[in-house]
């Protein structure tokens, strides 16, 4: 149980890094944005219904696609990202499937399809929002493809990606976005939301 000094120093290093960023985040600075070109691996993942999903095909779609990385038992970051997804779905009105929302687990050890399903239900996810798990190696490759490799789920960072079917480019958003920012980014990618329907869709089901 005696942990060598060096290990303890690692903790300090972590703490320093962590808190430096937090201090910065306390400033009004909101999020970082860039436009990227990514190549998706042709892997087979599994969705909340236990169905196999050919990942590359799913993303290279005619529809707008949004991707984030979360996991079933995550603390702070996932609630925020997922609340953002749920909010977007409410704004989309009745046809929630016109945008493909994809969440990918970074904890494929624990996240079975049943866990994914239960998670989506907690956020009252509607059709169009898929949560994927799969082989760890395949998920590593997906993370790498997005230049978003997390060595461990505790190193999780808030990243959201929006793909425009027009040119296949990805908008990369780093940070925890407000609902308005998220919608703005989504519109900037060239999409529309149907405001008239949103109140109707917001009625809890």
């Amino acid at each position: 149980m005696i942990i060598p000094l060096i290990r303890a120093l690692v903790l300090l290093a972590v703490a320093t890094l962590v808190f430096a960023v937090v201090a910065a985040a306390a400033e009004p600075e909101r999020y970082k944005r860039s436009v990227e070109q990514y190549t998706m691996p042709d892997v087979v993942l599994i969705n909340q219904d236990g169905e196999k999903v050919r990942f590359k095909k799913l993303l290279e779609s005619e529809q707008p696609v949004v991707v984030d990385f979360i996991y079933g038992t995550c603390t702070t970051i996932c609630p925020i990202l997922s609340a953002g997804y749920a909010n977007l779905q409410r704004k989309l009105g009745t046809d929630t499937t016109k945008v493909r929302l994809v969440s990918i687990t970074i904890d494929p050890e624990y996240d079975t399809p049943a866990i994914l399903k239960e998670y989506l239900a907690r956020y009252q996810a509607k059709p169009g929002w898929d949560f994927l798990t799969g082989s760890r190696r395949d998920i590593d490759r997906v993370m790498n493809a997005f230049d978003a490799y997390f060595r461990d789920k505790m190193d999780h960072k808030p990243l959201t990606f929006i793909r425009s079917p027009k040119d296949g480019k990805w908008i990369r958003l780093y940070g925890l976005l407000s609902g308005i920012d998220f919608l703005d980014e989504y519109k900037k990618a060239g999409f529309t939301v149907t405001p008239g329907l949103s109140t109707k869709a917001a009625v809890p089901n």
């Binding site: 060598p4 060096i6 120093l9 690692v10 290093a13």
Partner: peptide
């Protein structure tokens, strides 16, 4: 143990690949 921790540091310092 010590080696493990050293590696840990290296990993943290960005040698993630």
């Amino acid at each position: 143990m010590r080696n493990k921790a050293t590696l840990h540091i290296l990993l943290l310092l960005g040698m993630l690949t």
